[in-house]
């Protein structure tokens, strides 16, 4: 197993005045090229913090992130993020939002016409080419998230980081978008790391599911392989024994062994 992305003994401590909170403790994880890994855990367990550390938006207190054996500690397009709330810039059109990243990443390697074609290619991948001149306020939530995915894909990241990408969507739109992401993963073979709190989503999409214990001092509690062949079909899996077993394992972890303790 070759480590493509390696999380090496990551600890994260937040200090506010005299109070310190240890959010993450000793996180170790290696991800292979082309793998789809989900990180699941109850809210507040620090999974978003972990994603921010990988993205370079937050620094780890100790430990580090290695991408192709090189340490990365600042944000960059090689680890493009699809944000939970799409984070499209409202004053730019769909096309301009995607182009913002493309222009930076391929400033020297692609000509103007090639960059334009590349933006449209990525909008086509997520079936959003028809809305190229619309502004984010004029399209639906699902469409915004598609554009967010296109923006990240267009940067040709080594690792695509998805931060609860479907969390804000209704169930039908979510299923539709999950299928799209599966198809894209199949077609492009990206390495994907996804944060989620949805068990079905994790099992359906992932090769491996990383289950986190509750914070503070959250650790990786268990890593589950999902030995389901691809392409996966949502309807067929509903009665698939392996699928149900995996689902059961995750549910047991989340609701029996690491039940979420209400703070209030």
């Amino acid at each position: 197993m070759t480590a493509y992305l390696k999380l090496d003994h990551i600890d994260k401590v937040f200090t506010r005045g005299a109070a310190t909170t240890e959010v993450l403790k000793d996180i170790n994880l290696t991800i292979e090229k082309g793998e789809y890994v989900s990180i699941i855990g109850h809210s507040g367990c620090g999974k978003s913090t972990l994603l921010n550390i990988i993205a370079g938006l937050t620094g780890a207190t100790t430990g580090g992130v290695l991408l192709e054996n090189r340490e990365v500690n600042s944000p960059g397009p090689d680890r493009a993020v699809v944000f939970q709330n799409h984070s499209l810039l409202p004053w730019l059109t769909v096309y301009e939002n995607v182009k913002l990243g493309v222009d930076k990443v391929f400033a020297r390697t692609k000509s103007r016409a090639e960059r334009d074609a590349w933006v449209m290619h990525n909008l086509n991948l997520v079936q959003m080419a028809h809305a190229r001149d619309k502004r984010p306020s004029e399209i639906s939530g699902g469409m915004k998230q598609r554009v967010g995915i296109a923006r990240a894909l267009a940067m040709e990241p080594k690792v695509l980081l998805l931060d609860e990408p479907f969390g804000a969507l209704d169930a039908l739109t979510r299923a539709h978008l999950q299928d799209s992401v599966m198809a894209l993963h199949q077609k492009l073979g990206n390495t994907i790391l996804m944060i989620t709190h949805d068990v079905d989503e994790a099992v359906l999409l992932s090769d491996r599911i990383v289950m986190m214990t509750n914070g503070p001092s959250a650790r990786i509690g268990e890593v589950l392989e999902v030995p389901l062949a691809r392409p996966r079909k949502r309807l067929e899996l509903a009665t698939n024994a392996t699928y149900l077993k995996c689902r059961q394992r995750v549910l047991e972890f989340l609701y029996e062994r690491h039940r979420f303790v209400e703070a209030a």
């Binding site: 944000p75 680890r79 709330n85 984070s87 913002l100 930076k104």
Partner: peptide, 29 residues
């Protein structure tokens, strides 16, 4: 300016001048 926009700028690696023109001024307009 929402942290989200700053994050987007960071991931795309806009330099300070581009950040000023493309994020800061439109967001604060």
């Amino acid at each position: 300016i929402p942290q989200d926009y700053r994050n987007v700028a960071a991931v795309v690696q806009l330099n300070p001048l581009e950040f000023f023109a493309k994020i800061m001024i439109p967001a604060a307009a």
